[in-house]
Design a protein around this nucleic acid. Sequence first.
DNA 1: ATGACCGACACAGTCGGA
Length: 254
Amino acid sequence: MQLATWNVNSLNVRLPQVLDWLTAHPVDVLALQELKLSDDKFPLQAFTDIGYQAQWFGQKTYNGVALLSKSPAEDVVRNIPGFADEQSRVLCGTFDGVRVIGAYFPNGQEPGSDKFAYKMRWLDALREWLRAELVAHPQLVLMGDYNITFDDADVWDPVGLRETIHCTTEERNHLQALIGLGLTDSVRLFPQPEKNYSWWDYRDFAFRRNRGMRIDHILISEALKARATACEVDKLPRKNERPSDHAPVVLTLD
DNA sequence: ATGACCGACACAGTCGGA
């Protein structure tokens, strides 16, 4: 079984690339973030044409998430139960017995801002929901654009970006609290290239210079950790014309 | 230091992204 996550930065623009990628990498579940389209604009037919089913939770202009899958989704949940949210950020379903949560974590913009405070509240709510979800579903994966780096190894310029957004101690403590629930960063289970990032700024030739951050993650429960055989970032789509600024991350399970 | 680049919305310039 293979699972993947990809922030596509507009599904309108990136649909051909998503279709190409899925054809070349027929994963069982692909979580998408930043659809930037309303539900009535979701291109369902394009995915059914290549053998995929879909769940989607869109929003005009901003946010929006989807789960594309070979098998049908069961027990679908939209956003974090009990956390009132105008923004479409979380989509959850069970696929072949695996509880899959696709999430687009808030950006936070700048420490001290209202958006940062929302990010912290959102992270609190996510953690408390996950705590219960893990009891009900031992085989669980949380994947998406976390907008948080684990540590300086995830940052191209840790000195220059010290305590800036995605790199603050407060955000990293929240990420460690998810680890504290019994989740594991699947990328770091396996040997990786040096400076292994998942996002690069569009500006200043950042991809060519590998000036990036690893902010897209796949966290897995103990039961899934026992099944994990590989996890890697696929940088190839970032080399396309009109690429997303994020690259897909792919997890392989036995 | 600032802006760079991109997408949406709208059709200019602003906002949000990260």
